[in-house]
């Protein structure tokens, strides 16, 4: 998908299919007690809206013949950075429960800054330590929010 027109055709077709799927899913909603507004009404209307607009967008773009702006995609390095940042975020979410918020925050922030600027290792480590401590002191200890503490801190008796 290099241009807006190409993207509109492909995404429009995808949205039309999504709309169709929503209409199908809406038809399977259990109605139960008779009501003035069926629980199927809104999902069905929205499914049809997405179907019609998606198809309309694809058709309109397919017939479009004018100047077609290019999509500003990142270069190879930019793409690698986005994928790496998303992978780090996924690891952050995965490891939050077993390792606990403070430790996983330290690891995530350090790793992410380290990846983005490898020459700033000390900034990465200090930022990680600072945010890890803030997450524990402010959010777990002071505000008493139920964030996971993790087995390591539990063993140390730091349970908030």
């Amino acid at each position: 998908m290099k241009t807006i027109r190409q993207a509109d055709i492909i995404v429009g077709c995808f949205l039309a299919l999504l709309g169709l799927f929503i209409v199908y899913a809406a038809s399977n909603i259990r109605i139960g007690v008779e009501r003035a507004l069926s629980p199927r009404f809104f999902p069905s209307v929205l499914g049809y809206t997405i179907l019609v607009c998606g198809a309309g967008l694809a058709l309109k773009s397919w017939r479009f013949k004018g100047e077609d702006p290019a999509i500003q995609w990142p270069d190879r390095q930019g793409l690698r950075t986005i994928v790496a940042c998303l992978a780090l975020l996924s690891a952050y979410i995965f490891l939050m429960k077993p390792l606990g918020l403070p430790i996983v925050t330290f690891l995530y922030v350090t790793a992410n800054i380290w990846y983005l600027r490898p020459e700033k290792k000390s900034v990465a480590i200090l930022s990680g330590i600072a945010l890890g401590i803030i997450s524990y002191v402010v959010f777990i200890h002071y505000l008493q929010l139920s964030f996971p503490v993790g087995f390591l801190l539990e063993r140390l008796g730091l349970e908030g």
Binding site: A25, A26, I29, R30, I31, G32, V33, R35, P39, P43
Partner: peptide
Amino acid sequence: PLTGAARL
């Protein structure tokens, strides 16, 4: 919210 039926 009214019937409790699962939607989507």
